[in-house]
Amino acid sequence: MELDEERIVMITNAIGLAVLELRFRDELITEYTLSEKLEEMRQDETNVIGKDTYKDAEELIRTGRFPVI
């Protein structure tokens, strides 16, 4: 199944934002810390689409595969 380009951009932006936040806090960037940060961001998000984006980004970090629609 082909992924929507807009969805890929949103997932990439979510991961980039999480990496920057970890970096600015001088935290070690690992698969675990990145996944935890994305989960924290998902919980803070009020938009349903945003929540799904953070969930998909977290799954990508944990599994190394894009989530299937």
Score class of each variant (00 low, 15 high):
21 E>Y: 07
41 M>T: 00
21 E>P: 02
13 N>V: 14
60 L>M: 15
64 G>N: 10
18 A>N: 02
31 E>F: 03
30 T>V: 12
20 L>Q: 12
48 V>W: 11
51 K>F: 13
60 L>D: 08
35 S>L: 04
66 F>S: 00
47 N>F: 11
32 Y>S: 10
20 L>M: 15
5 E>R: 08
38 L>P: 07
32 Y>D: 07
9 V>W: 07
14 A>G: 12
15 I>S: 02
3 L>K: 15
24 F>Q: 15
69 I>R: 14
20 L>K: 12
50 G>S: 05
11 I>E: 03
66 F>Q: 02
11 I>D: 03
53 T>G: 06
20 L>V: 13
13 N>W: 01
68 V>A: 12
53 T>D: 05
39 E>L: 05
13 N>I: 11
33 T>I: 04
47 N>G: 05
18 A>I: 09
3 L>G: 07
12 T>R: 07
31 E>A: 07
49 I>D: 08
63 T>S: 15
10 M>V: 03
6 E>G: 09
40 E>Y: 12
65 R>E: 13
17 L>Q: 09
62 R>W: 05
44 D>K: 13
59 E>D: 10
12 T>G: 10
56 D>S: 15
56 D>L: 04
5 E>N: 09
29 I>K: 15
51 K>D: 07
22 L>Q: 00
54 Y>T: 12
2 E>P: 15
37 K>V: 00
48 V>C: 06
22 L>C: 00
21 E>C: 07
37 K>D: 01
30 T>A: 14
11 I>C: 00
57 A>M: 15
9 V>F: 09
58 E>V: 09
41 M>K: 01
30 T>N: 13
25 R>Q: 05
3 L>V: 14
56 D>I: 06
35 S>Y: 06
10 M>L: 11
28 L>Q: 14
4 D>V: 06
51 K>E: 13
25 R>P: 00
10 M>K: 15
52 D>L: 10
39 E>S: 02
11 I>P: 03
52 D>G: 01
4 D>W: 05
39 E>T: 06
21 E>M: 11
8 I>W: 02
6 E>P: 06
21 E>H: 08
9 V>G: 03
19 V>D: 01
69 I>H: 14
4 D>S: 10
25 R>K: 11
27 E>N: 06
23 R>T: 14
62 R>Y: 08
2 E>L: 05
39 E>N: 04
4 D>A: 10
40 E>V: 08
2 E>K: 10
26 D>H: 13
28 L>F: 04
54 Y>I: 14
62 R>H: 03
10 M>P: 00
35 S>R: 02
51 K>A: 12
4 D>F: 10
1 M>C: 04
63 T>V: 15
6 E>S: 15
26 D>T: 07
39 E>D: 09
66 F>P: 01
44 D>C: 04
3 L>N: 10
55 K>P: 02
41 M>I: 03
40 E>I: 11
57 A>I: 13
55 K>C: 03
23 R>E: 13
39 E>M: 08
32 Y>G: 00
28 L>D: 14
66 F>K: 00
62 R>D: 12
20 L>G: 02
55 K>F: 10
45 E>A: 06
58 E>G: 07
54 Y>G: 03
63 T>A: 12
28 L>T: 14
69 I>L: 14
